[in-house]
């Protein structure tokens, strides 16, 4: 926690220096009424990323053996599948709950406590769920786009969801000493960042303005996730 407290003054400087200027030709977006704050926080997150997170992710990618990376990912993924099973039930998707629960059973036993992932080979496909998506499924609007410190893009609904995610996270109960838990969360964050290293080119190709490029891609992704990849069509305007 101490480390986070020390970040606060930096954050303050970043935000007061920021309250960012909007780029030329800027088009306001109704989903993003807090854009000036969000842009400043985006810049701040970006500088932390360049200074700390990205270099760590590169080291992790280049020096940790691939098998170890894969095993760690599977192990934490299996713990996540426990809560994903619960989310599928919360959302009334019994079949999907069966698949997610089946993944946990198979991977915890045949997969050596989740280190391996034989469930995927059996056709039990991994899914993506969290509290933000469950709230959305229950009908909660996303609210404004909201850039979280360090954690990155979110919305008001998904930020509340993230708090709930942490409170009910099975990883938190398995690693119940705060030092161990922080190490684990750090590892997970670095693993996720590592995935993004190779997507860098694609992200750049999508973004003529980096802030709006990331925002629009992220919001579209969330909407799609809430509907499990099958959102109601938004009619396309021919202009």
């Amino acid at each position: 926690m101490n480390r986070f407290l020390r970040l606060i003054p930096i954050l303050g400087i970043a935000l007061s220096a920021g309250c960012a200027h909007l780029p030329a030709g800027h088009v306001p977006d109704e989903r993003d009424p807090w854009e000036r704050y969000n842009r400043a926080m985006f810049e701040f997150n970006d500088s932390v990323d360049r200074a700390v997170v990205k270099p760590l992710a590169e080291v992790y990618r280049d020096y940790v053996p691939p098998l170890a990376q894969q095993s760690l990912r599977n192990f934490f993924g299996n713990l996540r599948d426990v809560i994903i099973t619960a989310h599928q039930l919360f959302q009334g998707k019994l079949e999907a709950a069966g698949t997610a629960g089946g993944r946990v059973l198979v991977n915890t036993t045949l997969g050596f406590l989740g280190v391996a992932d034989p469930a995927s080979e059996m056709g039990l496909v991994k899914t993506n769920e969290d509290f933000g998506q469950t709230f959305g499924r229950w009908g909660a609007e996303s609210g404004p786009y909201f850039m979280l410190p360090l954690l990155g893009p979110s919305t008001v609904r998904d930020a509340i969801g993230t708090v709930a995610d942490f409170s009910f996270d099975p990883i938190g109960s398995v690693f119940n000493q705060s030092a161990a838990r922080n190490v684990v969360y750090g590892l997970i964050a670095i693993d996720r960042r590592k995935d993004l290293l190779d997507a860098q080119g694609t992200i750049e190709a999508l973004s003529f303005d980096r802030y709006t490029g990331v925002r629009d891609a992220w919001l579209a992704r969330r909407r799609s996730l809430i509907y499990d990849g099958d959102p109601p069509p938004s009619p396309m305007k021919e202009e």
Binding site: V27, S207, F208, T212, G213, A220, R223, P231, M236
Partner: peptide, 19 residues
Amino acid sequence: MGLWLVEHYRNQFAQVVGA
């Protein structure tokens, strides 16, 4: 992954054309 490319690029391009 949920992002329609034409719509996405239309928004990105609008900003550039506007400027």
